[in-house]
Design a protein around this nucleic acid. Structure first.
Lengths: 341, 341
DNA sequence: AAACATCAGGCAAACGTTTGTGTGATCTGT
DNA sequence: ACAGATCACACAAACGTTTGCCTGATGTTT
């Protein structure tokens, strides 16, 4: 058995040349003669030589690995996003180290540590819904580990991110419902530490202003995205004097619970109360009560774009990145209408 | 700025001791005196020393990383399984390198290469549906990289795996439908290179035998899990002379398409034709036409168990693993009934 | 007090690769 | 034919950590 692991040294000694020559030969370095170069490459192939990546990582201070931190893979939005990241990464010889925060800020912090200690070259993050301090991300800049956020963006200055323009998406949703004749439109919003939640409010108010309508703050309610809180705010919305005939739900998952809450109140879906939602996940296609429309957020593209930004950041050297310009990529969402009305 | 990276050497020179002493002190090696030990640890903390993992990986020939290869994260079954893997891994200081084959055998092969070159300590795999050659997995044994399969098990001898007993699950499903009065029960099966497909047939036939019924092979049809092929076999099943009144679908995703196909034929779901399925994914809860029952496959537990096996394999040394005993963990599935009938 | 055990720590090699520098040998132009 | 350029390769250091072996200083036993 030639079980022995083949190294550059081994090849060198068999060919009676120095390891450095072998290394250069394998990299087609011009200073190596054609003769020895082909000799080396031939023998390497014969012996089935495979470079020891751990040695290379160590030597080059680079791992060609990027960490991806996200709340929940079981949410189709994120599993689709990570596909975008992974596809783009593998095309560029990068590998993905994955971690789920399960929407727990503490676990997120810990995962950042793990990623850092594994020496990822960069980090792509969608933050947990209850993350409110950001030191663990800020610390990474000291290690020159670039961070790109997507979708769930923290409230920080000077960060790279890619997100969807939720303001515009919300305006689209609002106008769509207005056109269907709805006068009073409620909104189940997410936690206000998320940029996306603020933008939803912004889009809602923009639409109101354009339509010269006055703003009723009680029609917008924040929840923490848990089933209980969704039930609570849905019930609250539906017991208002100015009771909405349509509700914009934070996303397709929130929608599912909101629908259930409305049904518990003996309301007829799409008659007494209609829904519009965000994300446009596949479940909508099979759902018993799909939303009238859904704001497509292009998760795959968001992931892909985030990875592209990461690659760009990694290709620049440290000083180039010091010039403090930050990527802020805003994708335009698109309202997908599910009904024939 | 003390931007300088803190290494063991640095600590050593500041304390005028040797690097080896520092290393041992940090590891609480007994041969280091209490004085210097605390000195070292104090200074290390002060300087915020962090071991260079890439150096350690290199030196120890171990990366504390395990690769996970699966078909599609967007399928809830797999995203749940990887959660089980990840949770178990991170509890044991392991990290997960993720790759999706997108059910493409070629890509799978390539990912195995990537994983290998990244020197993962082990690999957990659920194979692509069209994977029929296994050299890429067999090759790993030469590198002493243990492989644990789960759910989608290849047709290989001498492998470690964890799976659900699909035969028993199918028998349960079959008997459940019989009890509801169904006489002719069809099955939409998966590709026959999957062990799970064979087991479904086995369970189906076992149930028949027990009930002293005779076997009509035309009632079991394989598909390649694509939407088109699901439509095709569903239509075929429903145009049989011995037309089934109930169908066992390969999984909850197959079910969605099968239901659609049946509706296209103007059949009333749960009246003209009923369905039972596998996996028991959350979508069933929100679906317009949920199955009457679903065979829960405990994906999270499968992932977890696979990781536990992996940890065990990694804890043993090479020769211990040479004794050729292979883990075959079979979880008992459970029929979850969704209807009140 | 001699013999020996234990303690506390240093030395140096090793893991596999890359890369700056050095050096003979061949080649070019005049 | 000779200075200089170019070629083809070797040498050695470096990346940060771990670990087997060695040694000088205490401590213990008789």
């Amino acid at each position: 058995m030639d079980n022995k692991i083949i190294t550059i040294k081994e090849i060198a000694s068999r060919l009676n040349i120095s390891p450095s020559t072998v290394s250069r030969a394998l990299h087609d370095h011009k200073s190596i003669g054609l003769r020895t170069r082909t000799n080396v490459q031939k023998l390497a192939k014969e012996l089935n030589y495979e470079p020891n990546q751990t040695a290379i990582f160590f030597q080059q201070r680079k791992t060609f690995t990027i960490g991806v931190l996200l709340p929940e893979l079981s949410e189709a939005f994120f599993s689709s996003a990570i596909s975008g990241i992974e596809d783009c990464a593998s095309k560029n010889k990068y590998t993905v180290l994955m971690g789920q925060s399960h929407d727990d800020a503490e676990r997120e912090k810990q995962l950042v540590e793990t990623m850092k200690s594994h020496r990822v070259d960069g980090l792509i993050v969608s933050i947990a819904k209850n993350t409110i301090t950001y030191e663990h991300f800020e610390a990474l800049s000291k290690y020159d580990i670039p961070v790109v956020f997507f979708d769930r963006i923290p409230n920080m200055a000077n960060i790279h991110y890619v997100a969807c323009n939720m303001a515009s998406g919300t305006t689209q949703a609002f106008n769509f419902l207005r056109k269907l004749g709805h006068k009073s439109i409620g909104m189940i919003n997410g936690p206000m530490n998320l940029l996306a939640s603020k933008e939803r409010v912004e889009g809602y108010r923009n639409a109101l202003t354009k339509a010269r309508l006055k703003y009723d703050p009680s029609l917008i309610m924040s929840c923490d995205l848990s089933t209980e809180s969704i039930y609570r705010v849905t019930e609250k919305l539906l017991s208002l004097k100015n009771k909405p005939t349509a509700i914009i739900a934070f996303n397709d998952y929130v929608l599912l619970d909101a629908v259930q809450a409305a049904k518990n109140l003996k309301l007829k879906i799409n008659k007494d109360i209609s829904f519009v939602s965000y994300a446009n996940l596949p479940i909508s296609n099979y759902s018993a009560y799909p939303p009238l429309a859904s704001v497509e957020q292009f998760s795959y593209q968001q992931g892909q774009k985030a990875m592209e930004i990461m690659l760009d950041l990694l290709s620049k050297n440290k000083t180039e990145n010091e010039n403090h310009t930050f990527y802020k990529i805003i994708l335009e969402p698109q309202l997908v209408i599910h009904t024939d009305l």
